[in-house]
Structure formats: structure tokens, C-alpha cells
Design a protein around this nucleic acid. Sequence first.
DNA 1: CTAGGGTTAG
Length: 576
Amino acid sequence: MLVATVTALLNSCPTAKQAKQIHAQIIVCALNNLEPLLVRQILLSASTYSTTVAQYVLKILYHLHCPDAFSWGFTVRYFSQQAQFKEALSLYFQMFKQGLCPSTFAISSALRASARIVCRTEGILIHAQSFKYGFCGCVYVQTALVDLYSKLGDMNTALKVFDEMLVKNVVSWNSILSGYLKLGHLAEAQRVFNQIPRKDVVSWNSMLTGCAKSGDMDQACLLFEQMPERNYASWNAMISGYVDCGKIESAQKLFAEMPQRNNVSWITMIAGYSKFGFVESAWELFNQMPEKDLISFNAMISCFAQNNRPTEALKLFNEMLKADVNIQPDEMTLVSVVSACSQLGDVRYGSWIESYIKNFGIEFDDHLVTALINLYAKCGNIGKAYELFDGLKKKDVVAYSAMILACGINGKVYDAVNLFTAMVDAQIEPNLATFSGLLTAYNHAGLVEEGYQCFNSMMEHQLVPLLDHYAIMVDLLGRAGRLQEAYELIESMPMRPCAEVWGALLLACEVHSNVDFGEIAAKHCFELEPTTTGYYSLLANIYASVGRWDDARKLREVIKDKKLAKIPGRSWTEIT
DNA sequence: CTAGGGTTAG
């Protein structure tokens, strides 16, 4: 590669991520035999992208006159430490292809990389190589192997390697412990924990997290009190445990009590608030954060997107791109941004967002593609949605549900049903959202009996219908004119019906000019959402349609008063 | 080796 080409490439690179990938290419060139002086020039220009890369480049240059196994090993380790696991692995295999004998350095780093991104085949291959080169007695290699097999969930092999270790260290103990915890074998983990000769703070934290994840906060508390030393991870694991079991107040209390907070603490709380719909509290914390990083922005953007505040999500996204903040978004950012765009349901966002993704050099991973399916479906581009769906590497329950809904809102009931059948055939368990999509499909097609059957079949999948499912059913029954049944369904609901549910009935009553149920539905809507004038209009329409002009007029008066009373508040939100 | 952010819901 010529200096000019590489330099131009780097200068035109719009994202740090792409720049990093180009670094990787350059480093391979460097190690592969380019003239040192030429490469030096390239690397120095590359190093302007980050100080860590600059430091690294200097070290590489030191060895450059002879790209030997040591340099390669050093490089693999560097990438592994930088959490660039894919790059680390690919470098390792390139080195191997050159016929160079790997060092324990390279092997243990490559194993670490394959453990972190759970590359089964690669990991096992490297294990075989380390055996071939006689490195299986090296503690670093052994420790990495124990961790690899624990992360793969293969505890038999992990234990086999572990038992062969002449010198067991606390890291290998901890790897075994986290292996069992990952599988949810709490009792086994506890047994291992008790056996660890010199437990360190990681051992305690792992055990604590295991208890918290299984919902046993009492045991987690006990461990937290007993542990000889606490670090950030200990406190954060406790906070995260409380958030997971819905005890947001306890989480809040610990957050306030902890001696020092790091970004993980802040983000755990923000995500916790988001989960339970406390958007204002999340926003307040976010603003108090001293050093906001990518993940904190992602958490906050996701909070807005998940709580039906798409405009604020997009606003914050723009905020992070501003020069004074300048944080590069990643796949996860875009997933929330795409979700926000689809909530706004504006066709224009489709191409806007795609060009953004391309400009930022972001990969279209399955999550992002699923979010895009929804976006295109909402914009009515079902063909594009299908195209994306077919291109998915792995179709999971979310992907199927998104596609079923895509068909549902675009009037393709039979496609939706076929997808559902295909999904069940593929042994993928439908969830609540799957049924939302399917019911939506039946609703759009006005297929009452099928919808009913579908609703009732939820029980067969051990699913209890949520508010939304009831809302769709009420809408379906109501539009079909089966108002009595719709009303009875509402009455049979195990949870308190929200305004949306009564609103669906009210709307149906307007369509069918039914005063009796209309009045009941409206009464509930007025109670639940006194400021929404739309419900008053609906009832007024119903009165008008049966000739009760006086009642209709009275309601229109009420609407006028309410609108007047609302003006100050509304204009305020519109300005900001 | 432990702790934080993602997709579906007329």
C-alpha cells in the first residue's frame, strides 16, 4: 500500500471506528515486510487519531526492522487488550499463516479474544495449536483456556484444564465460578466459591452477582456485608440486582450511599429509571453525570425511545454529534435512533437514517436490521422490510415478531400467519410482542373469529395477555359491531383498563352510533384522561349521529373550555 | 476473572 493511498484513506475516514480498522490493515502491512521508513510515515500519520494508537505505534516501530513472532504476538495482545477481539484473532491467524511459531503471548491473547466474542471453533483450534507447541503447561495459556471453556458453557473441559493446572491461581478459580454462574448452577457455584483458597474481590463480586441475577437479593446483601473489600463492581452489582427485581428505591438508596460512583453506576441507575418509565429521573441523573461516554448517551437515548418520546431521543442523538461533545455513535445508538424514527412514522426518515449509518461506518447487525424492518414497515415499504428480513443471519423471536407486525400493519394477514407458523416450526417460542403483531394483523383484516382464537391460544404458550392485547381485541370486536362482547371483554380484564382500551370501545361506538356503550366508555375515558379533548368529540359525534343535538352542543362547550384552559401549558411545550 | 447501553407492541 502506498503512503499516499493510506494517508488519503485515513484523512477521509469519517469515523474513529473505520480509522481503527484501517490501522489494523496498516499494521498488517507493516509486519508483513514493508520498508520500515515508509511504514513509519504511514503509522505516524495514523497515530494522530488517538493517543493510545500513537503509543502503540511507537512500540511497533521499535520492532519493525524485523517483524518476528514477538512483534506479532505483541500486536495480538495489544488488540486483545484494546477490546478489538475480531482484529486480534484475525492477526493471530495471519501470523500463523506466515509459518511463524506463536508465542505464549500470542496464544493466550488470542484465546482471550475468542473467549470474549465466544468463537467456539477458533478457540478450540487455538487450544489444539497450544497443545502442539507445548504451551499447555503455561499458566497464562491454561488460565485463558479455563476461561474460554467456561464462557462456552463447557464446564467438563474447563474443569479438565483446571485440574491439570499445577499452579492454580485465583483467576482460574474465578473463571470456573463464573462458568457455573453463567449456566445458572447456583449451588455448584456456591460449592466452588467455598473452595477458593484466597478469594479476591472478583470472587466475591461474581458470587454476589450470581445471587442477585437469580433474584436472591437477601443472599446478595449478606455477601455484600461480609465481603472484606468492595470496589465499584460490588456496589454496581447490588444496584443492578435491585433494579432487576424492581426495587428501584433500594437501588436509589445504594447509589446515594456509595462512596464514589463511576459511569457504570450512573448508567445502571439511568437504565433502571428508564425500565420503569421514570424518564424525568433518568434525565436528571444523565445531566448530573460528570463525564458522559458513548454508553451513557446510548442509555439515555434508549430511555427516550423506549418511553414514547422519540423527538427527545433524536434531539439527544444530535446533541452527541455536536462538535463540543463529539461522541461517535455505534450500532446500539442507531438501533434506538431507528426505533425513534419509526415511532414518528415519517417516510423521510428511512433514507435519512440509512445514509447516516453508511456515513458513520456502522455495521448492519441483526438488531439494527430488525429495527429497520420496523421502520420500513411503518413507512409502508413492505418490500424493503421483507428484503431486510430475508438477509438476517439469525432470525430470532424479535425479528419474526417485527416482520409479523410489518405484515400486520400493511394488511398482509396471510403472510403474517405464515411467518408465525414458520417461526413455531423453527422451534422459536412466540412471546407477547409476537401476539401483538399477529392480533394486529387480524384486526386490520377484520377477522374476528381468527383474532379470538389467536387471543385464546396465548394461554397455550404460557402467555398472559397484556393491556395492549386487550386493546387490540376490543378494537377488533368493536369495529365488527360486537360492542356487547367488547364491553364484556373489558369487564373481564384482570388489570385496570387504560384510556386506550376504553377509547377503542368509544371509537367503535362512534362508528356504529351506539349511545349506551358510548356513554359508559366515554365516562371512563374522561376519568382516566380528563385533558384529552378527543374523547369529548367522539361522544359528541355519537350524540349528533342519533339526533341528540343538545347533548352534542353541551359537550362541544366543554371542549372549548378545556382547550382554553390548556393554552398556557401547551404553548410552553411547543416552544421548548 | 466481576459491574453499564440495543431490536418487536393500532
